[in-house]
Design a protein around this nucleic acid. Structure first.
Lengths: 122, 122
DNA sequence: CTGAATCCTTTATGATACTG
DNA sequence: CAGTATCATAAAGGATTCAG
């Protein structure tokens, strides 16, 4: 209990004094509307832009672009441009991106155990 | 590898056919702008509305209300109203809410290890 | 004290057309 | 093919006021 309390105190301290929460930080990396599925697709194998655009139902090119750029900025994925005509761009997952796998899996488990039981997603 | 591939196939199937992803589902529960800190505060001990409003710097009463209502709808927290004047309302964490702890902690760890190193939060 | 109601501003996302 | 640019709409969030 001592540990847990100290942990809590440190967290609140971080929150309240520096207003920078590690949890929120992580959320800002993986919390985008389409980021989890993009991560899931890319973590399996290399993907091209159009390929993902076709696979992810309902996403616009604009959104796909912005989500990819954010993931790239956070060094979760890598964007490789081939100087060919027509253009070819490949997205791959980085080491840092791979380190998110346990988290994604844990969220998936929790979702299966909890949310999908009490809610409807269309 | 077989397992992982099947896992992936199932996930993509879920995503693409039913458009209901367990990861996104979990995200919809804990991904709100202020939910992680609310959870963290409440998981420590019972909190009243005004108490949280004072502790969470920058949150409006409107936002606090809506975030609390969403957490309540997802059965993560419980809202207990005392029929007194002036009004008194206590928020407590539920069993389901407690089951989120490992997830929150994992996100916190990842954030500390990764995001806080490469970004600035103000 | 714990909100609800209203109005307003900002941000996010969509649709469409265009380009190297 | 892989985007960008532009315009339009929707959703999120803030400020303020009111009420039991």
């Amino acid at each position: 209990m001592k540990n847990k309390s100290e942990d809590y105190q440190k967290m609140i301290k971080t929150y309240l004094e520096h207003n920078s929460c590690p949890v929120a930080a992580t959320m800002s990396v993986i919390g985008g509307k389409w980021k989890s599925i993009i991560l899931y697709l890319i973590s399996h194998d290399v993907k091209r832009f159009g390929e993902m655009h076709r696979m992810i139902d309902g996403i616009s090119k604009k959104m796909l672009t912005s989500q990819l750029r954010e993931l790239e900025a956070d060094k979760i994925i890598h964007r490789k441009v081939f100087p060919v005509v027509p253009p070819k761009v490949e997205y791959t997952i980085t080491e840092r991106g791979l380190s998110l796998r346990p988290l994604i899996i844990a969220m998936r488990e929790w979702g299966l155990e909890n949310v999908l039981k009490i809610r409807h997603y269309t």
